[in-house]
Amino acid sequence: MPIPVSRRRRPAHRGGGPVWLFDLDNTLHSASHAIFPAINEGMTRYIIDALGIGRAEADELRLAYVRRYGATLLGLARHHPIDPHEFLRVAHAMPELRQMLRAERGLARLIDALPGRKIVLTNAPEGYARAVLNELGIERLFERIIAIEHMRRRGQWHAKPDLAMLRHVLRAARVRLAEAVLVEDTRSHLKRYRRLGIGTVWIVGHLVAPVRGERDGRGERRAARMPGAGRPHYIDSRIRSLKSLRRVISRSSHALD
């Protein structure tokens, strides 16, 4: 049976383009300044309450599961008797979401102008993703949202950068790997998915300045140099702004500049 992916009636799109797979946080909007800190705090507080441990241990557990599994939820669901849906609800409860959002000027126009299909692919829950897209005024531009609830298979939770999961959800969405282009801020996701032959665009404009030795919201230890520096071999294009997607040349093979 096809995976139950959230979708709307498919928007009209200009033919000849790729299938754009957009990450959500720090890709379609800036999450670093307010939203990531709020999510991290919500996750930590849930872990404290659910497991009865102290803040320091809860923070370390949250980061350890991000590093090991790609998402805190996956580690919690595997090793602890928690309610995954309740965890996602608590961690992404943001009554002040509108005030917390920051995005590029003319975002809807930029995305609408891109040829091809557009899909959101996020490790966030669907309710949060839909709320963000609604506040940004761009939900109508995407044919579907593939959120973490849609990445489950055979009762098991999965998340980016799981390879089998991506194959599965793209097959359900009738997307060939050769025509997909992932636009993402997390370099490790792009590195892993490049193995499948998809196009990779690294957006760096929302990454925060590093503090030596400190770990970011995904558990990666920040380097001393500025974030977004260089362009690794597995990155087809490195951009600071979604405006630059207009310079990403799409051919039948979707070779990127």
Results as ranks from 00 to 15, higher is better:
P232N: 10
A159I: 01
H79N: 12
M226K: 14
R238D: 05
R176F: 05
L74T: 04
Q156F: 09
E179N: 13
Y65P: 03
V211G: 14
R212N: 09
R89Y: 12
T27I: 05
I198E: 04
G127W: 02
T44L: 08
E179Y: 04
R102G: 14
E60K: 11
P84R: 04
E126I: 02
M165V: 09
R105H: 14
R194T: 07
H33V: 09
L76N: 01
A56I: 14
K191L: 10
R218A: 13
P95V: 07
D185E: 12
S237R: 15
H168Q: 08
N40A: 15
M165T: 12
A58Y: 10
L207P: 03
R154G: 13
N26H: 09
R55A: 13
A38I: 03
A58D: 09
S32Y: 09
L256G: 04
R14D: 10
S30G: 13
H79V: 06
V120R: 00
Y234T: 09
P18T: 08
V183G: 00
V19I: 10
L190W: 00
D83M: 04
R167T: 09
A223T: 14
I235R: 01
K243L: 11
A71I: 04
R152T: 14
I145M: 08
R109E: 15
G137D: 10
H254V: 15
D59K: 14
A108Y: 11
Y69F: 15
G217W: 12
Y69T: 06
V120P: 03
I39F: 01
R238E: 03
D257T: 08
I249S: 12
P4N: 07
H29R: 01
F87P: 01
D25Y: 00
R195I: 01
A223H: 12
P232L: 12
I239F: 05
V201K: 04
R247T: 09
S188Q: 14
G106H: 15
G16E: 06
H13F: 15
H189I: 11
V204I: 15
R10Q: 12
I145P: 04
D236C: 08
L133T: 01
T186W: 02
L207V: 10
A172L: 01
R212A: 14
R171M: 07
H79C: 04
F87K: 02
T200H: 06
T27D: 05
I198P: 00
A164R: 13
R195H: 08
S32R: 06
A223G: 12
R195P: 02
H79Q: 06
G228N: 08
G197S: 08
A255L: 13
S252P: 08
L88S: 04
I119M: 07
F87R: 03
W20E: 03
I203L: 14
E184I: 06
H33D: 14
F22H: 06
R225F: 13
E60S: 13
R251Y: 07
I146T: 10
H29G: 01
M94T: 05
R153G: 07
H150Q: 13
L114I: 04
A124R: 02
G228W: 07
V211T: 12
E104N: 13
E41I: 03
I35N: 06
D112E: 15
I39P: 00
E57M: 08
T72M: 00
I47R: 03
H168S: 07
P161Q: 08
D216T: 12
R194I: 02
P227E: 09
E143H: 11
D83C: 06
L97G: 09
A38D: 07
D162E: 15
L141E: 11
A131I: 00
L141H: 11
